[in-house]
Design a protein around this nucleic acid. Structure first.
Length: 467
RNA sequence: GGCGACGUGGCCAAGUGGCAAGGCAAGGGUCUGCAAAACCCUGAUCACGGGUUCAAAUCCCGUCGUCGCCUCCA
């Protein structure tokens, strides 16, 4: 069975065929860096990280580009408010975002272009579009002429007529058509700008992505991704610009992730209902956010609230539970148990591929992982030795890694606290021997309040930092 | 108003024509000094109304509802 991907352009799942064998060119729209990144940005980055890892697992060599929009109105506005240099502001947020991604175990994109580093290519594209009649200068700005592009609106399924009816913005009456969009914006005094044939200015929002694609990936790419809030106008305009110039279909597959919902609304900078990635990671493991994304459908909305987070954290715990060692004194599991475990490994592997091949159905893939977890835990309870558990645990780690799950226990305790926890646990063990239950329970409760979980068993007490 | 996605047990979520995966929560049990973890057991006819079919959660039509986009937005 082949990999199938839902294509926003055709509204169908289509069999995945690359332009070049075993090679994938993927471009994902990154953030505009005028503020701290929030978990909604993380969701998008996670979705495409999962896709990228899976394509890699399936044997493709993936060129993964993610851009930074590092010059635009909001950056300039915010820099002015804060009285700092806009480029320095952008640079700072880019570094923070890259750190956020690393903390989330998201692989760095192989290509990380920035708008400000593409100015020559952008100027050339704008000039070419003017030369071809697809664009026109107007008092220092340059606009794309949507009427000239017959199939404008193809991606988002809109017609120019329909859109005009709903347009609510102030229309610049100088433009030939209200829907014409800026390729180049003239600079006002004090704004960062570059010299151009039309006067000093800066690139419009959409053109940078077209230019970066052309420069770094070529005229045609396999996958173009981003949040579904970018379908219109951003991606629509990218298509218009790029295809008007190259005359070739721009991207084979348009892939869009759904929005993270907070309090029933899209989490966004403009609505102000956001949780930064930094804040999230201060309280929860990276695997938890990833598991939330994995167990929902990437195309649909994802609800973000305390209950969903708690569920994901427990899920992470459950996955990790399978990686624990054999019970002390394990004498080996019955053959029937080992056979069942071996069979489950195969089933899980098959389910994994089958699910992920079906438009990255990670929820189904994770369900298979949970089934393997249960089999492993069953085998352990049946007395399996470490060596008997190892292959299944390795399989769990392997498939977990394909999804980007670390399954690592958190090392979140205060630095150097571990020996002291050991000491308390040791003291408590002595108390338990003397049946000093009240004291034992007090220690357990107090440690729990500090984030340390104790688990007693016949063979002794084990402890870990709570996620 | 236009375009699109979606509506499956208390919650999250697979399944897209042939007996409704999985996780969390809940209840019962094993284990435990108690607890935790782990293991075992228990629950849904799939928003609603029509239609197609031997057979539909799954296809078609309609209704209602949720969300996104139509303005910067992952």
């Amino acid at each position: 069975m082949a990999l199938r991907i839902y294509n926003t352009m055709t509204h169908k799942k289509e069999e995945f065929q690359t332009l070049e064998p075993n090679r994938v060119r993927m471009y994902v729209c990154g953030p505009t860096v005028y503020n701290k990144a929030h978990v909604g940005h993380a969701m998008s980055a996670l979705v495409f990280d999962i896709i990228r890892r899976y394509l890699d697992y399936r044997g493709y060599q993936v060129s993964h580009a993610m851009n930074f929009t590092d010059v635009d109105d909001k950056i300039i506005l915010r820099a002015n408010e804060m009285k700092v240099d806009p480029f320095a502001l952008a640079e700072g947020y880019i570094r923070e975002f890259e750190q956020n991604l690393a903390d989330l175990n998201i692989l760095p994109a192989t290509i990380k272009p920035r708008a400000t580093q593409e100015i020559p290519q952008i100027l050339k594209m704008v000039q070419d579009l003017i030369d071809n009649g697809y664009a026109y200068p107007l008092n220092g700005d340059v606009y794309f002429r949507v009427r000239k592009d017959e199939d404008y609106g193809r991606l988002s399924g809109r017609k120019l007529e329909d859109m005009q009816a709903g347009a609510r913005i102030d229309v610049d009456s100088r433009k030939e058509d209200p829907m014409d969009f800026a390729l180049w914006k003239s600079a006002r005094p004090g704004e960062p700008s570059w010299e151009s044939p039309w006067g000093p200015g800066r690139p419009g929002w959409h053109i940078e992505c077209s230019a970066m694609n052309l420069t770094h990936l070529g005229e045609q790419i396999d996958i173009h991704g981003g949040g579904n809030d970018l379908i219109f106008p951003h991606h629509e305009n990218e298509i218009a610009q790029t295809e008007s110039l190259t005359g070739k279909p721009f991207a084979r597959y348009w892939v869009h992730n759904g929005m993270l919902q907070l309090g029933g609304e899209k989490m966004s900078k403009s609505l102000g209902n956001l949780v930064t990635i930094e804040d999230f990671l201060a309280q929860h493991p990276a695997d938890a956010l990833r598991l939330m994304v994995l167990t929902s459908s990437y195309r649909g909305p994802l609800t973000f609230n305390d209950e969903v987070i708690a569920t994901a954290e427990r899920g992470v715990e459950r996955l990790r539970s399978a990686l624990r060692p054999a019970l002390p004194g394990a004498a080996g599991a019955p053959q029937s148990t080992l056979d069942a475990l071996a069979k489950q490994m195969e089933t899980t592997q098959a389910t994994f591929i089958e699910s992920m091949d079906d438009d990255f159905n990670s929820s189904g893939a994770v369900a298979g992982l949970y089934e393997l977890v249960r089999s492993i835990n069953q085998a352990r309870a049946d007395g399996a030795r470490d060596a008997e558990l190892a292959p299944a645990q390795a399989k769990l780690r392997e498939l977990g890694a394909v999804l980007g799950l670390t399954l690592q226990e958190e090392q979140r305790g205060a630095q150097g606290a571990d020996p002291f926890v050991d000491l308390l646990v040791e003291l408590r063990t002595e108390m338990r021997k003397q049946k000093q239950w009240a004291f034992s329970d007090l220690i357990r409760d107090r440690l729990a309040a500090l984030g340390v979980v104790l688990e007693d068993s016949k063979e002794g007490t084990r402890w870990r930092w709570n996620a």
